[in-house]
Design a protein around this nucleic acid. Sequence first.
DNA 1: AATTATACTTTGTTTTTCAAAGTTATTTGT
DNA 2: ACAAATAACTTTGAAAAACAAAGTATAATT
Lengths: 101, 101
Amino acid sequence: MTLFDIHQIDETIHGRVRLGIMAFLAASGTADFTSLRKHLAVSDGNLSTHLKKLEDAAYIAQHKSFAGRKPLTQIELTPQGRTAFLAYLEAMSRLVSASAM
Amino acid sequence: MTLFDIHQIDETIHGRVRLGIMAFLAASGTADFTSLRKHLAVSDGNLSTHLKKLEDAAYIAQHKSFAGRKPLTQIELTPQGRTAFLAYLEAMSRLVSASAM
DNA sequence: AATTATACTTTGTTTTTCAAAGTTATTTGT
DNA sequence: ACAAATAACTTTGAAAAACAAAGTATAATT
């Protein structure tokens, strides 16, 4: 019986919204603030807070620019972010394997 | 590109400690309070709170008895709990598949 | 008999999540 | 042209969640 160790879980990624952000970015490479907010169906304040947390962990980078004269925030996974997300996925794979019922 | 929907995640299970409880119970059938606390390496107060939350959701049942005169709490997965955990695992499998990088 | 340990629950604090309100600039309607 | 509405965020405050310290009750140890 291979037991699953909860301490393998990276809490920075594990949160529902941040997990959605990471999965989206892993699939798409980059995203802008608005499409992320629409895709995840969260409030803008909430998204902003979670992005900041991921940025503080250096898992994403936010590039603020202007599209014409409107602010545009483009978000991308950093190499560390990709590595951490891979590790998270592996931990989840282990959970799934260990728990197959 | 199959995108992962964060609203599929059952927050009652997703929390790190509760996920550990569910995985342990899924593997072992039942457990007592003390072995769960040791395995998860959490404080007793913390464990008590999470168990109550899972009990409120009817995902586990707690049977309080005495071993000699010492209180003994035995915890088991309910059928609903097993079903919900299976659904959670499937959601996580989808995440892993969708995110394979 | 007094201290230490076991098995919890309750309470209070810290941390996290989330949305309402605020900011700044833009577009639309009249 | 001027007000009103929209866009793209950030900041702030409130609600919820997580956690550990303290409390309760009994048992074992010295």
